[in-house]
Computed example of a mutant assay.
Amino acid sequence: MRYWLFKSEPSTWGWPDQVAKGDAGEEWDGVRNYQARNYMREMTLGDRGFFYHSQKERAVVGIVEICAEAHPDSTTDDERWDCVDIKAVRRFERPVTLQQIKSDPLLAEMPLVKSPRLSVQPVSAEQWQVICAMGQTDPE
């Protein structure tokens, strides 16, 4: 299993929206960055990801799971763009803020810290465990 981070503006698509989609999940569509698209192409069923609220909140608020591997993004006819489907697994008991992440030396190499604009990012297994512990949330 691999781990990822999905950034979303909560005013556009927030954690409650994701939860409302249930086990069917929802396309993570509209991504128009080649690196983020390439990461989605690497994802496999059952991989887990952090659901991160950007903008004002800037915090990991939940865990999602890949429920459909990379396929054409339904929001465009341009064949270059793929997306995955994700479903909500559980909310974080305590959201973990970007400030908390930046203050932990174990997380200094995270793309969230080094390349904050990227909307889909890899997360190492160690980083996954650290952030779940910070959020008092079961990592499984």
Rank of each mutant, 00 (worst) to 15 (best):
W28R: 06
A133L: 01
Q127L: 01
G62F: 00
L106P: 01
R37M: 09
G135N: 06
W4F: 11
C67D: 07
Q127I: 03
A36C: 08
T97N: 02
R80N: 13
M110D: 05
V113Q: 01
A70P: 06
Q100S: 10
R94S: 08
R94V: 08
L106M: 10
Q100D: 13
W81K: 05
L118G: 01
V130N: 02
S103T: 06
V123Q: 05
I131R: 00
T97C: 04
G46Q: 00
E69N: 15
Y34F: 12
W4V: 02
P116I: 00
P72V: 03
T137P: 01
Q129A: 14
M1A: 13
I86S: 06
V130D: 01
D77C: 08
K102Q: 15
N38K: 03
D77N: 14
P16V: 07
P72A: 05
D29F: 10
I86R: 02
S54N: 03
E57V: 15
A36W: 06
K87E: 09
T76Y: 15
Q127T: 10
E27T: 07
F6T: 03
S74F: 14
S119Q: 10
E26S: 12
G49Y: 09
I101M: 04
R80S: 07
R2C: 09
R94E: 09
C132A: 13
G25S: 09
E126N: 09
D104I: 10
M43F: 06
Y3W: 12
I63L: 14
V31C: 10
R117M: 03
A59G: 09
Y3P: 01
P16I: 09
V64A: 11
P139Q: 11
R80K: 15
Q127V: 04
C67R: 12
E79H: 13
A36G: 08
M40N: 02
Q35V: 14
V19R: 15
K87H: 11
S8H: 09
A59N: 07
W4K: 05
D104C: 03
T75C: 14
V60A: 13
I86N: 03
D23I: 11
S119C: 11
D138W: 10
W13V: 12
E57C: 07
G62P: 00
T44F: 03
M1P: 02
E69K: 10
G25A: 12
C132Y: 11
D17W: 08
D104P: 02
Q127A: 14
A20Y: 09
I131T: 00
A68Y: 07
V19G: 05
G22Q: 14
D73W: 04
G30L: 08
P95K: 09
G135A: 03
Q18P: 08
Q100K: 08
S74A: 15
F50I: 01
A59R: 14
K87C: 15
D82W: 02
A108T: 06
A125M: 09
E79W: 11
N38W: 00
D78W: 12
S11K: 13
C83T: 15
M43C: 13
A36D: 07
S103W: 07
Q35D: 08
D85P: 05
P111E: 10
D73N: 07
D104G: 04
C132G: 11
Q121C: 04
W81H: 10
I86L: 14
M1D: 07
A88C: 10
G25V: 11
E109G: 11
F50S: 03
V84N: 05
